[in-house]
C-alpha cells in the first residue's frame, strides 16, 4: 500500500468532518486537534468534552505538546476499540506519534488516520460514515477500502 497516497486520501476523508481547525496538510494534523474533533463527531459520548479538555489547544504548540496530544488521541482510540467496539488490534504497526508531532511524517499520519477510519466504520453511526465514504471519488474509496481491509486483518 502506498502510504503517502493513503495519507492524502484519508486527509480528504477527514475533511468531510466538521473540523474547525486547519486540516488540509499533515502538518495541520500534527497537534492531534483535528483528529480529536473528528473522533468527537464519531463517538461524542466517548470522546466527550471532558476528554477533549485534556488536550492542549493552541495555535503554535511545540512538538512535545503535540506529541502529548497525539498520545492521548491514540490511547483514546485504542481504549475505545477495546471498551466500546470489543476489538483488540494486534499486529498492526501503531503510529509513531513522535514522528508525527516532530517531523509531520505522512506514513505515520496515515496509520493514525487509519485507526480513526476503523472507529468510524464500526461506531453506532457507521451507516452515516460509510455512506459518506461511498459518495467520495472512486480512487479515494479504493484507498479507504484497502485501509479498512488491512486493519480488519489485524484484529
Amino acid at each position: 500500500m502506498d502510504r503517502a497516497q493513503l495519507c492524502l486520501s484519508l486527509i480528504k476523508w477527514l475533511n468531510t468532518f466538521k473540523v474547525t481547525v486547519p486540516n488540509q496538510t499533515v502538518e495541520d494534523l500534527s497537534d492531534g486537534i483535528a483528529v480529536a474533533q473528528a473522533l468527537r463527531e464519531i463517538a461524542p459520548d466517548y470522546f466527550n468534552d471532558a476528554w477533549f479538555k485534556k488536550l492542549k489547544v493552541e495555535e503554535s504548540l511545540n512538538w512535545r505538546l503535540k506529541v502529548s496530544n497525539l498520545k492521548k488521541v491514540l490511547n483514546g482510540m485504542l481504549e475505545y476499540n477495546i471498551e466500546v467496539l470489543g476489538i483488540q488490534i494486534q499486529g498492526f504497526q501503531m503510529p509513531d506519534v513522535n514522528l508525527i508531532g516532530e517531523r509531520h511524517d505522512s506514513v505515520e499520519t496515515s496509520r493514525l488516520l487509519q485507526l480513526v477510519l476503523g472507529c468510524a466504520v464500526r461506531c453506532s453511526e457507521k451507516q452515516f460514515h460509510i455512506q459518506n465514504i461511498m459518495k467520495m471519488e472512486e480512487s479515494v474509496q479504493q484507498m479507504i477500502m484497502n485501509a479498512i481491509q488491512e486493519l480488519m486483518s489485524k484484529e
Binding site: 471498551e83 467496539l85 457507521k126 465514504i133 474509496q141
Partner: peptide, 30 residues
C-alpha cells in the same frame, strides 16, 4: 447508495465491499 453498480466493475466491487460493511454486525455494544 451504489447498490445498482454493475458487478465485476471496480465501482461494483467498492459498492459490494461497503454494503457488506454496512450489514456487518460489530461492536461489543452492538
Amino acid at each position: 447508495d451504489g447498490k445498482g453498480a454493475p458487478p465485476g466493475t471496480s465501482e461494483g466491487m467498492l459498492a459490494n465491499f461497503f454494503n457488506s460493511l454496512l450489514s456487518k454486525k460489530t461492536g461489543a455494544a452492538g
